[in-house]
């Protein structure tokens, strides 16, 4: 049912979503921890900044990312200087854009999870002479696991469903940046509805299975605390 190009687009989507989610979980952990714990007057402005990608329509966000990462933009100047070349129209560019686009979906669940960890438990760990890293790995992380699950699911699903940003940054290049959503758009534009339906069905079913796995694990937790 799926052509070679369809399979390729599907795999590229999964790869993009997986890499983006992994990077986001790593980046968002210290950021969310800081946002949840700090009393700095910068807390509110930084929170607002993290939520900003929600405000812009994806094609608009994509356009400004394209300009910023292009040869005349500040990010483009930086990456060229670092010898990385220009990011748009590469897989790396898609990852960077997706990280920006899905940032609030990962930071906010983590921030809430960290905020829910009681100060008492942290104090108790400190009294028992646990080093901060030790406390984080053995006290905070287990308590925040549901938050990580939500953050991972939202980051992954949001990246799979991306369209406007990846179309603008990726340039719709087969095999390199043409993800499933863009491939479906291509099929629709070319009036190849049968192929569009087939690929869309695969994307939906696969995503459902992934979400089912993740949410299923969460349900088990609720039943057996």
């Amino acid at each position: 049912m799926l052509s070679h190009a369809d399979t390729q687009a599907l795999l590229l989507t999964l790869r993009l979503a997986a890499v983006t989610t992994a990077i986001l979980l790593v980046l968002a952990t210290p950021a969310a921890w800081w946002l949840a714990r700090t009393r700095s007057r910068w807390q509110a402005p930084v929170s607002a900044l993290v939520a900003l990608p929600l405000v812009l329509p994806p094609t608009v966000l994509g356009f400004y990312l394209l300009v910023a990462m292009g040869p005349h933009g500040p990010v483009g100047a930086l990456t060229t200087r670092l010898g990385l070349g220009l990011l748009p129209f590469t897989f790396g560019g898609l990852v960077v854009a997706s990280v920006v686009y899905s940032l609030p979906f990962v930071v906010q669940p983590l921030q809430n999870a960290f905020a829910a960890v009681g100060q008492g438990q942290l104090d108790a760990a400190a009294t028992l002479r646990a080093a901060p890293l030790d406390t984080f790995l053995n006290v905070v992380l287990p308590l925040a696991r549901p938050g990580y699950l939500t953050a991972g699911v939202l980051g992954f699903a949001h990246t799979v469903g991306e369209f406007g940003v990846v179309l603008m940054i990726g340039g719709n290049i087969p095999g390199a940046t043409r993800v499933a959503s863009v491939q479906i758009y291509d099929h629709v534009e070319a009036l190849e509805y049968a192929q569009a339906h087939g690929l869309a069905a695969c994307l939906v079913v696969f995503s459902f299975v992934i979400l089912l796995l993740l949410y299923g694990s969460r349900h088990v937790r609720a039943v057996r605390p």
Binding site: F63, M69, P88, G171, A190
Partner: peptide
Amino acid sequence: STGATGALAAQVANGAP
């Protein structure tokens, strides 16, 4: 690679291959 003419032109101006 297909797209809207205006979007493709913006991409060309920003280094599309």
